[in-house]
């Protein structure tokens, strides 16, 4: 019954993310996968702009490029050109990847660039104080949708993994969540598959993570989980959307 658990080397230093933020879990899973696959010293992580910026060194003890808001799809593409022997992983929030960076995100997938993209979806632009994102749910109150999001004039929550999965060549697309230990264990497998894909030279992978944002949702972790179960996860179905390896 007992297991051993230790702090991954890549995350020995504490980070400054908010209490209860899903990013902390996703980064830990990524660190675990990289160390298990023997790639923790053979990976260049490209960070978008947003809460993920908290994971610049010293919080992440690996190699990190901080790129401009929205452009990680392009930067990670260039990293892989420069060092095809290393893993090139882009890590972005939903504001970064699906709003300002929609063109670069979709185009890297469209070209089947041999990179791995991890996006964390929390229904708002968190770092800048909780503005509406394209993933904000209908009627959700944010600081730029104070009367609740009107999807008639702002669009329905965007499902980028579904669009990416529609590109024929793309290898692997999955959506997971951090809502419970069981889901976190499934999410780790998705990240592991995506990373292994790249190691084996199989083309583009994307893993989207539905995550809580206690600070901007103004909810404790239990209420965050309840709202995610009620509203977000039914809209954003979990699982592998595409797996060209089967």
């Amino acid at each position: 019954m007992a297991v051993t658990k230790s702090v991954p080397r890549l995350l020995e230093n504490p980070h400054t993310l908010c209490p209860g933020c899903g990013h902390g879990i996703v980064f830990r899973l990524l660190a675990e996968v990289l160390e298990e696959e023997g790639y923790d010293q053979k990976t260049i992580l490209t960070l978008g702009v947003g809460c993920c910026c908290n994971m610049n060194p010293p919080a992440w003890k690996g190699d990190v490029i901080q790129t401009a808001h929205g452009r990680a799809g392009a930067t990670a593409t260039g990293v892989k050109v420069g060092r095809p022997d290393l893993l090139s992983i882009a890590y972005q929030g939903d504001g970064d990847a699906y709003v300002i960076g929609l063109a670069e995100t979709l185009n890297a997938a469209y070209r089947n660039e041999p990179i791995t993209v991890i996006t964390v979806l929390n229904n708002n632009f968190a770092m800048t104080g909780g503005q509406m994102s394209w993933t904000t749910m209908p009627g959700q109150v944010t600081v730029t949708s104070p009367n609740g999001r009107d999807c008639d004039i702002t669009g329905l929550p965007i499902k980028v993994p579904e669009i990416v999965a529609s590109f024929e060549n793309v290898n692997y697309v999955a959506r997971g969540t951090t809502i419970s230990a069981a889901e976190i264990n499934k999410l780790k497998k998705y990240i592991q598959t995506a990373v292994r894909n790249q190691i084996e030279g199989k083309g583009y992978s994307m893993v989207e993570v539905v995550s809580p944002c206690p600070t901007n949702w103004r909810k404790g972790v239990a209420d965050c989980a309840a709202w995610m179960n009620e509203e977000v996860i039914p809209y954003y179905p979990l699982g592998e959307l595409k797996n060209n390896n089967k």
Partner: peptide, 14 residues
């Protein structure tokens, strides 16, 4: 505590 490790799994801060 049964040392199952679920706390480790769900903790964002290790």
């Amino acid at each position: 505590c049964i040392k199952c490790g679920i706390c480790y799994t769900v903790c964002p801060d290790i």
